[in-house]
Write a protein that binds this DNA or RNA. Structure first.
Lengths: 165, 165
DNA sequence: CTCCCTACCTAACGGTCGTTAGCATTGAGT
DNA sequence: ACTCAATGCTAACGACCGTTAGGTAGGGAG
């Protein structure tokens, strides 16, 4: 709170006429994060093939991380300092996001667009890991679309064998 | 330090006849982590094909995370509270580990075992992300070999098309 | 037996942090 | 013109935390 006040050019105590508590601020940052990440998925057209949807999902996720690195960091790492039922609420919201991502893989497999023996849990976790880990190394503001596409290319085609295009 | 002392059944102040500072403890935990992760890579036979080596590397990494979850968490998340030149030393050690992992992909491609257009940086990052993110969800002590193999299968063969075995 | 190192204790210091109380200023709406 | 809500200030609180000072008990080495 001290650093925040200093950055605002204001005394520490003055913050409390603007917010109820530090927990409240954390909660609001988390909601902002949830909104941003979900909005990314909302922007994906339903009718696209699975591979494309996964590519766009990765793009959207990485874009949020790069453009709102602070919010993303809170969403990915700092959420665990949230207490009480707000924490439960966040965890549920987070799970919902992960489930939406996993659904992309499951649907792709069930519709025959992805390999029939696909372990959708492992695949989604792999994608989510890359997406979530990015906050540790991504330069803020950097263009991430190309990077997301490279991740997707590896996810989709693997690393073995030869190029298919 | 208070919690540590309590867990040891000892007064807070008594810790300082056993260690110089909290930073010292953090540093030692980090070294333990570095040793464990590097030892995992050391155990991989040089003559194996690239896919196999990557599979074993992922197995080793996930095993460290599951068997030494506390050390792994410090290694992956808490290292940033280390200060001064010890921090620099750790960052270098960490980079060395990542470079060893990346080398597996690069060598695999250069030897013709992996696709010739492989982006080894992206591939290594994808694998490392999955490995590093695991500390957030892995149940401590759980058997992780099968999980590592599933990740590897997706990495190697991708999610598109049909099973090759 | 004596020395001394290790491990432990109690007590406190100095600092940080989130928060609160009480008060002053200001500006928009009635 | 008066009100009142928003915004800010100063000062302090209580709690926590890493660390230190100074002292005690005990056991092994010389």
């Amino acid at each position: 709170m001290g650093e925040l006040a200093a950055a605002m050019g204001v005394q520490k105590g003055s913050l409390y006429s603007l917010t109820a508590s530090k927990q409240e601020l954390l909660y609001e940052a988390l909601r902002e994060g949830a909104t941003a990440f979900h909005a990314g998925l909302d922007g994906i057209p339903e009718e696209l093939p699975a591979g494309e949807k996964i590519r766009l999902a990765l793009r959207a996720h990485l874009r949020v991380v790069a453009e709102q690195l602070d919010v993303a960091t809170v969403f990915i790492r700092e959420w665990r300092y949230l207490e009480g039922e707000r924490r439960d609420e966040f965890v549920a919201e987070r799970r919902r996001y992960e489930e939406r991502l996993r659904a992309l893989f499951r649907e792709g497999r069930d519709r025959g667009e992805l390999r029939s023996d696909l372990d959708e849990g492992a695949a989604a976790l792999l994608a989510l890991s890359a997406a979530n880990w990015a906050y540790t190394w991504l330069d803020p503001g950097r263009d991430t679309d190309e990077l997301a596409d490279r991740f997707t290319a590896i996810l989709v085609d693997g690393i073995r064998g030869y190029a298919t295009r």
